[in-house]
Structure formats: structure tokens, C-alpha cells
Design a protein around this nucleic acid. Structure first.
Length: 735
DNA sequence: TCGTCTTTGCGACTTTAGCG
DNA sequence: CGCTAAAGTCGCAAAGACGA
């Protein structure tokens, strides 16, 4: 077959072979149970339906696709064009429209491939690049404008979604999608009615978006007589994961059949100034597009658009004409100094690319850096903050509790993940609400940028989505799965040694060290924090890791820390601060996020967690979560167990505390004013009320200044904000 | 309610080190 | 040697905690 094909077409043999396998259905048997069809035969009318068994294409093609990755969370594949082709065929072969979620994922995979490969894959599946960008085929091969579109079924979409678990580039996104599917979030399609209240509201509150969008659309649509789809694709070009701006040869944009001809859009695309205008307006457009149809995977989607582009866009802006596109259009004091770079996501300018990258990682990609202190689950948006925090000897700062309320967005994502994880045992082993089977749903993390110029495919394969228990990544360090049992996983790709001191500790490095120390000192003394867990730590590698300790100063520091925490515990006992008791319980029982998970698992099987009080609390929590899921008490830090889990842990360990002499701690007996939701105790009913409003109801205090939409969790913050505004006479940009 | 302190976020800028 | 990326330092603003 290959020889035959090669004789027919010397180029793109691989693609042709694959395509041929698809088109001619060589031994692509049906995977449905009780179906004996051993060869897919495309239907005459419905190409995706097998003439033999009448089952769909996906049911057949899955016989050629791996599925075992669903059960091996730690391994991801390198994105190869042939594999992408196979997966593409699931959604593109014989269809004329793509489910948006799959397109998002496919964009990611395409971003890793070469442009030529993408074009070839699309063309081989009878899709043009324009159609793909658009998301559906505008005209058929004969040039007829379609008014109905063949699209894969929902079941096929679900099955196809699982294929994206194979790749680090898409794994975490799929998991997020699964989560949001599971949460039953509906895909909302904004109304297109004019003069609607919603439109008015949105436009009033997002002036930039509305203005740019309407202006750009108006300009473009009124500018010429082109079909608006064809014109609109210009502004969609930025959405391509690969670098389309000014880099794609004109023929690539055209249909492979040539029916759509060449576009005259490239001069505008490649023109620096217009690129700038385009991109600035494009993000409005992108926001519009990403927010609208696909609420799933919001963080990843929002980053998806921008994530692939900043450096590439930057290149075009910064290098082409030395930023003339940016600075050229701005004069006077607003002009950019030479060398400054421009963030297309927020339109801010930065000192250099490095600053922009830091900004982008922290602000747009939400990449976080975990505190290097073991047991501390604090995460930070910058290495600076992380290092500053890690260097702080105050042990209270490193307690595994949610102090960092500024990471609401992250933790809300994580909480969604982890809370779902908590229900995982009940929902995921079987088909979930949406029918998706994701047994290894643990990885929720900001998806790392995968700039091809910076990261090798091997790193890509190892980077995102491979950390089932570590949702936060420190920069672009390749990471390995924590739970990977293979000893060879210890840093298979030696990175360059740190250019500076070893201060910024890589998580990966930590894991390696911990593994090593784990082996060396598993039988050594237990960390002060884990005295109670000694038995649990024994015999379990993962738990053993939790019970390791580092050498030298850090050991002493943690010893001090442990002592301090113990002292703090007794002090808090004296102070009858029940909430602190809960926290210290967390410290002891689950001093690390991993332990939280362990405790979660442990409690799943433990009778300790079967007490009715906890069930009542959970019931109350469930009710609360119905009211407001974005609940501080449901949040979690750093991918560890959410506080719910922590509470479970503490509940579960509460009895153990009793064994260790802490059983007399009955907060309710001492402090009758406790929160029914989280069981925290307070001095008086008013404190309980305030806690309930602030934490559980998340009652926000809106700024009283006209035009300021800022909301604050406390009156104090609001009033202070008001004072700042008044004092500075400045205008606070509505949030 | 308010003042103060602590901590974090983040941009500007510098230093270090790899690489061609 | 210059370019570049990574990592560090510095300073300011803002938010939360806490006590008066």
C-alpha cells in the first residue's frame, strides 16, 4: 500500500497512507460490543456511517486509537502528526462542523505541529484551514453554501474527548472540561437580540470590548463586499495556535480545492501596525468568542488564545520594525520607550520580554509557584513572592491553610477539581453525569505555554498534565508525576543547571530529592508534624514521601516549625480557638496537599469518617455549595485537598487526637458560637454571622463610587478602597 | 470603625549564565 | 562578545489580620 501510494504521490506519504487508511477503511473494525463488523465501509450518503454495521466512524476508528492512557494518568504522548491525524479523523472525517470543545483541544495539538502538517491533515480530511478556523465548513466541495452541517454525535464527542487525555497539551483541559461537564454547567449562547438588557449591560460594563468589537466589526463588514465570514476570518487568524500572522503562505489559507481562492488579507495581517490593531481588537473578539460558547475550561480557554501567541506576536511586534507597530502609532508621553514590549492580552507594555513573560505567566496563565516549605500549600504568582514567603521563618505562614485569598480564581478552579475529586469515587469510576469516564481526574493546573521555540516535544510531553497530584507548576520546569512509581522518572531530562543560585527550587527537583530522601530516611525519625501518622506513613511510598524530611537547616527549621506548631496548638487550646484547632488538626493529619489527598482516600475507607455529624456538615455544605459554589471554605490551595477534605481529615483524625491527649478539645462545649457549615468557632454570635456572610455567603461589598464596580469581601477593604479613591482623586478602572 | 502591621502582587531593573 | 532567558532585587500598592 505504501509503495503504491508512494508511486502515486511522492510527497506526504505518511499523511496519504493515513488518509487512505481512513478513506478505504482498511481493517478498521467496529468497537461496539456485539458488533462483528471488521471493516468500516463508508456510507454513500453518510460517510461516517458504516454500510456494513450502520455504526459510526468513531466506533470503528477507536479500534485504531489507544485508550489505555485514560488509566495511566502519569504518561502522556508526544504529539505526532499521524496520531493527530487519527484523532482529527474522529471529528473531521465526514463532518462539516466541529464541536467547540474538540476544536479547542485540537487547536492545542495543532499548535505543536508544523503548519504544513496541519494543512495536510485538514486537507486530507476534506477540510480547509479556513473552515477549520471557522469551526465549520462554509461551502462543500462543489462550492455550494451549506445550510446544514454534519457533526459528530455527543457520544462520539465524549469518546473523542478522551483521546485528548493522551497529550500533555490537552490533558488538563479535558479534565477541566470533564469537571465542568460534571458540574452541569450549561453552555450559554448569548442572545443576539439587539437592545436587550443583557447586551446593554455587557456593553456598558465592558466598554473596551464592546467598543472594539463593534468598531472592528463595523469597519470590516462595511469595508467591502466580501462575505462576512470570509472577512471575519481575518480577525480570527490570531486564534490560530500556530503562528498565522504574516507567516502562513497565502495558498495555505485558501482551500485545497481552490474554490475559495486567495485572500487579499495578508498584507493587512503582516503589516505591523495593523497587526497591532488587529491583535488589540482581536482579543476583544477572542474574549467574545471564548467566553460565549464555551464556558467549560474557561481558564484554559482564555489562556488558550493568548497563551500561544504572546511571544509569537511579540516577535512580530518587537522585532518587526523594532516595535514600530506599537510605538509608531502612539506619540508623545504615551509612546513606548525603545525596547519595551507589548502584552496583547492586556495591552500593557513592559520593560522587556522577560518582564512580559513573568507578567504573562502570572497574570494571564495563572501559573503559580508553590512554597518550598514542606507542608505549606501556599502558592504564589511569582517566584519573587514565593521565595519571599519561603524565606520567611514565621511558621504560621507555612501552615497548610488557605490564607492566600488572592488566588481565588485559581483555587476556585482547583476547588472544583478537588471537590469533584472528592466525589470521584462515586462518580468517576462509573460513567459520570456526562458519561465521561475519567478515572484519573486529578490534574488541574494552569496549562503551561508550549512555545515551540522554547520547549522540546519531549518536554512538552512531560510538562503539562503529568502531575496528577501537583496542580501547580513552577514556571516551565518539566515535571514528573508524583505518583509515578518508576524510579526512572527522576528527572529523565536533565535541565541546564540553574543560572544563578539554587534558590528557586524546582518542584521537580524537590520531588527527586524527596524521593531520594525517602529511600534513604524512610525509617529515620519522623518529622515532628507527622508523629501521629507514623504508622500510616510506613509501607506506603507516597505517604512515606510525606513523612520525609530534608536535611540540614531546613530540618531544623521544620523541627522548630513543628515545635512551634505544637506550641501553637496548645496555645490555641488555651485560647479555645476552635478554628485553629481545626487547622492544627489539618497540620497534623494532612500536613501536605498530598497528605490531604491521602487522607481523603483514607477517609473514604475509614470508619472514622462515618460519623453522622460529618454527614450533617457535608449535607449543609452541599446545600451551601448549591447556593454558592465559589465558596472560600470549599477552596483549596495548591491542589491539595480542599478544606472540606481537610475537615474530613481533621474529623477523621479528631478521634486520634483524643488518643494523643487532645480529645478534651470540644470546641462546641467551650464556644457555643460556631459555624454550622465549617464548624469553626467564634467568640460571639456576631462573629459567626460575619463569618457566615463573608466566607459562606460571599457577600461582597460594592464600592459606592459611581462607575466603580469593585467589590470587596469586607467593608473594611471597600472603605479603604474608597479612601484611596478619594485621596488620590483617581479613577479606578471598573473591575 | 479605624489604624497599623504583615503579606502578597507585580512592574522595573539588574545580574547571571548559556549559546552562537 | 553580544544576545537572550532565567532569576534575582527593589519598591510600591493593595489586601487581610488584628487589636484598640
Amino acid at each position: 500500500l505504501a509503495a503504491y501510494l508512494e508511486s502515486k504521490n511522492n510527497t506526504n506519504v505518511t499523511i496519504i497512507i493515513l488518509f487512505t487508511c481512513v478513506s478505504f477503511s482498511f481493517a478498521i473494525c467496529c468497537t461496539l460490543v456485539n458488533c462483528n463488523c471488521d471493516s468500516f465501509k463508508p456510507g454513500k450518503l453518510k460517510r461516517r456511517q458504516c454500510e456494513n454495521c450502520k455504526h459510526g466512524w468513531v466506533a470503528h476508528a477507536l479500534s485504531k486509537l489507544k485508550v489505555h492512557h485514560m488509566y495511566q494518568s502519569s504518561q502522556v504522548e508526544i504529539v505526532h502528526s499521524n496520531v493527530v491525524f487519527d484523532i482529527c479523523s474522529l471529528m473531521l472525517y465526514g463532518t462539516q462542523a466541529i464541536p467547540i470543545r474538540l476544536k479547542i483541544l485540537l487547536d492545542r495539538l495543532f499548535s505543536v505541529l508544523k503548519q504544513e502538517e496541519v494543512i495536510q491533515i485538514l486537507n486530507a480530511l476534506d477540510w480547509t484551514l479556513q473552515d477549520y478556523i471557522r469551526g465549520y465548513v462554509l461551502q462543500d466541495v462543489a462550492g455550494k453554501v451549506l445550510d446544514r452541517w454534519a457533526i459528530m454525535t455527543f457520544e462520539e464527542e465524549i469518546a473523542t474527548l478522551q483521546q485528548f487525555l493522551r497529550f500533555g497539551e490537552t490533558k488538563s483541559i479535558v479534565e477541566l472540561m470533564a469537571l465542568q461537564d460534571k458540574e452541569g454547567q450549561a453552555v450559554l449562547v448569548p442572545s443576539t437580540r439587539t437592545n436587550s438588557d443583557i447586551r446593554t449591560f455587557i456593553e456598558r460594563n465592558t466598554p473596551r470590548t464592546a467598543a472594539n468589537l463593534s468598531a472592528s466589526k463595523t469597519d470590516k463588514l462595511s469595508g467591502n463586499s466580501m462575505h462576512h465570514f470570509e472577512n471575519f476570518i481575518n480577525s480570527m487568524a490570531f486564534m490560530l495556535p500556530f503562528q498565522l500572522l504574516g507567516s502562513v503562505p497565502a495558498p495555505f489559507l485558501g482551500s485545497h480545492t481552490g474554490q475559495q481562492g486567495q485572500r487579499d488579507n495578508h498584507p493587512s495581517l503582516s503589516h505591523p501596525s495593523e497587526s497591532t490593531l488587529l491583535s488589540s481588537g482581536d482579543f476583544s473578539t477572542s474574549d467574545n468568542y471564548s467566553d460565549g460558547p464555551s464556558t467549560p475550561c474557561t481558564p484554559s480557554i482564555s489562556s488558550d488564545v493568548t497563551q500561544m501567541s504572546p511571544e509569537s506576536k511579540l516577535r512580530s511586534l518587537d522585532r518587526n520594525g523594532s516595535g514600530g507597530g506599537v510605538s509608531g502609532g502612539i506619540a508623545g508621553g504615551g509612546s513606548l520607550k525603545k525596547g519595551r514590549v507589548f502584552c496583547n492580552a492586556c495591552e500593557k507594555t513592559f520593560y522587556d520580554k522577560g518582564t512580559l513573560k513573568i507578567h504573562y505567566n502570572a497574570v494571564h496563565l495563572k501559573i503559580k509557584h508553590k512554597c518550598t516549605i514542606e507542608g505549606c500549600n501556599m502558592v504564589f504568582s511569582s517566584l519573587r513572592s514565593r521565595n519571599r514567603h519561603s524565606a520567611n521563618p514565621n511558621p504560621r505562614l507555612h501552615m497548610p491553610m488557605n490564607r492566600n485569598n488572592r488566588d481565588k480564581d485559581l483555587r476556585s478552579n482547583l476547588s472544583a477539581d478537588e471537590s469533584s475529586e472528592g466525589e470521584k469515587s462515586s462518580s468517576f469510576p462509573s460513567m459520570g453525569q456526562s458519561g465521561i469516564l475519567f478515572p484519573n481526574l486529578k490534574t488541574v493546573q494552569p496549562v503551561l505555554p508550549f512555545y515551540r521555540s522554547l520547549v522540546t516535544p519531549a518536554e512538552l510531553a512531560n510538562t503539562p498534565g503529568t502531575l496528577p497530584s501537583l496542580p501547580l507548576l513552577s514556571s516551565s520546569v518539566p515535571v514528573k508525576p508524583l505518583t509515578a512509581p518508576e524510579p526512572c522518572t527522576t528527572d529523565p531530562i536533565p535541565k541546564k543547571k540553574s543560572r544563578k543560585s539554587s534558590m528557586p527550587i524546582k518542584i521537580e527537583k524537590e520531588m527527586v530529592e524527596r524521593d531520594e530522601q525517602d529511600k534513604e530516611s524512610s525509617s529515620e525519625d519522623e518529622a515532628p508534624l507527622h508523629g501521629r501518622d507514623k504508622d500510616e506513613c510506613d509501607g506506603n511510598k507516597e505517604e512515606g514521601r510525606l513523612c520525609t524530611r530534608q536535611a540540614g537547616e531546613e530540618k531544623e527549621a521544620r523541627a522548630y516549625q513543628g515545635k512551634d506548631m505544637e506550641r501553637g496548638m496548645t496555645e490555641r487550646e488555651d485560647k479555645d480557638d476552635g478554628s485553629r484547632v481545626t487547622e492544627t488538626g489539618v497540620i497534623t493529619c494532612a500536613s501536605s496537599p498530598f497528605e490531604n489527598r491521602l487522607m481523603d482516600n483514607h477517609c473514604d475507607d475509614s470508619s472514622l469518617c462515618q460519623d453522622p455529624e460529618r454527614e450533617d456538615r457535608e449535607h449543609a455544605l452541599n446545600k451551601m455549595s448549591e447556593l454558592k459554589w465559589d465558596d472560600g471554605e470549599h477552596r483549596l490551595t495548591n491542589g491539595g485537598g480542599p478544606q472540606l477534605i481537610e475537615r474530613e481529615a481533621s474529623d477523621g483524625c479528631g478521634d486520634d487526637y483524643g488518643d494523643s491527649g487532645l480529645s478534651h478539645l470540644d470546641p462546641d462545649a467551650v464556644l457555643p458560637h460556631h459555624c454550622e457549615i465549617c464548624s469553626k468557632n467564634f467568640k460571639n454570635p456576631y462573629s459567626v454571622k460575619m463569618h457566615y456572610q463573608n466566607v459562606h455567603l460571599k457577600e461582597m461589598h460594592m464600592c459606592t463610587v459611581d462607575g466603580c464596580n469593585a467589590a470587596f469581601p469586607s467593608r473594611r477593604s471597600r472603605d479603604r478602597n474608597l479612601a484611596v479613591i478619594t485621596h488620590n482623586r483617581g479613577f479606578r478602572r471598573p473591575l
